Simulated scan of single mutants.
Amino acid sequence: MDLENGIDVGEVITLTDDESGQDIDFTVMYIFEIEDRTYLCLVPVDQEEEEEYEVHFLRYDGTDTLHPIESDEEWEQVEATFETIMEELEKEDE
């Protein structure tokens, strides 16, 4: 799936940590939709090859801005959808 601004799976994007001000590179691992919202699943580049890694989700609203998930309800939807995607990928690998 290619988004209007060119974000694509496998692309590396740089985000700035609000607390530390440090720039962190993330790989876009998955792009998925829930209802009318689009989400990016991001993994820090330095953890990409590790067996366990941090997963970050951000909402994409059609502009150049990515938004954090702020409500518990939205977070639960994103987490459940991501788990379903992972289960389907594991079935394909069997």
Results as ranks from 00 to 15, higher is better:
residue 83 E to M: 09
residue 38 T to D: 01
residue 31 I to W: 01
residue 58 L to I: 08
residue 78 V to R: 06
residue 31 I to P: 08
residue 54 E to P: 03
residue 92 E to D: 07
residue 42 L to M: 11
residue 54 E to N: 12
residue 41 C to Y: 00
residue 77 Q to E: 14
residue 37 R to T: 11
residue 23 D to W: 06
residue 7 I to P: 04
residue 74 E to I: 02
residue 88 E to W: 03
residue 27 T to G: 01
residue 75 W to H: 12
residue 84 T to W: 05
residue 64 D to Y: 05
residue 70 E to R: 11
residue 78 V to M: 03
residue 43 V to H: 04
residue 13 I to H: 06
residue 32 F to I: 07
residue 36 D to Q: 02
residue 56 H to K: 07
residue 75 W to M: 14
residue 19 E to W: 11
residue 64 D to Q: 07
residue 30 Y to V: 11
residue 29 M to F: 04
residue 24 I to N: 10
residue 3 L to S: 10
residue 45 V to M: 10
residue 28 V to M: 12
residue 37 R to A: 14
residue 81 T to K: 15
residue 36 D to W: 00
residue 3 L to W: 02
residue 74 E to D: 14
residue 43 V to N: 11
residue 40 L to C: 08
residue 76 E to S: 15
residue 80 A to H: 05
residue 57 F to I: 04
residue 17 D to W: 03
residue 34 I to Y: 02
residue 34 I to M: 01
residue 87 E to A: 11
residue 91 K to W: 03
residue 26 F to T: 05
residue 7 I to S: 06
residue 52 E to W: 12
residue 61 D to V: 03
residue 21 G to P: 09
residue 23 D to E: 14
residue 71 S to G: 10
residue 19 E to K: 09
residue 49 E to M: 12
residue 73 E to M: 10
residue 54 E to W: 03
residue 59 R to N: 02
residue 47 Q to E: 15
residue 24 I to M: 13
residue 74 E to R: 12
residue 46 D to L: 08
residue 27 T to I: 14
residue 15 L to F: 04
residue 87 E to G: 01
residue 26 F to Q: 04
residue 93 D to W: 08
residue 1 M to W: 11
residue 82 F to D: 05
residue 12 V to C: 13
residue 78 V to L: 10
residue 62 G to A: 04
residue 91 K to H: 03
residue 55 V to W: 04
residue 30 Y to C: 08
residue 22 Q to A: 10
residue 45 V to I: 14
residue 46 D to A: 11
residue 33 E to N: 14
residue 76 E to N: 15
residue 48 E to H: 02
residue 11 E to A: 14
residue 77 Q to L: 15
residue 73 E to Q: 09
residue 76 E to M: 15
residue 45 V to S: 15
residue 91 K to N: 01
residue 38 T to P: 02
residue 2 D to L: 14
residue 42 L to C: 05
residue 4 E to K: 15
residue 30 Y to F: 10
residue 88 E to V: 05
residue 73 E to S: 12
residue 69 I to D: 01
residue 16 T to D: 06
residue 76 E to H: 14
residue 81 T to F: 04
residue 63 T to K: 05
residue 50 E to M: 11
residue 48 E to M: 04
residue 75 W to Y: 14
residue 54 E to D: 14
residue 88 E to C: 00
residue 64 D to H: 09
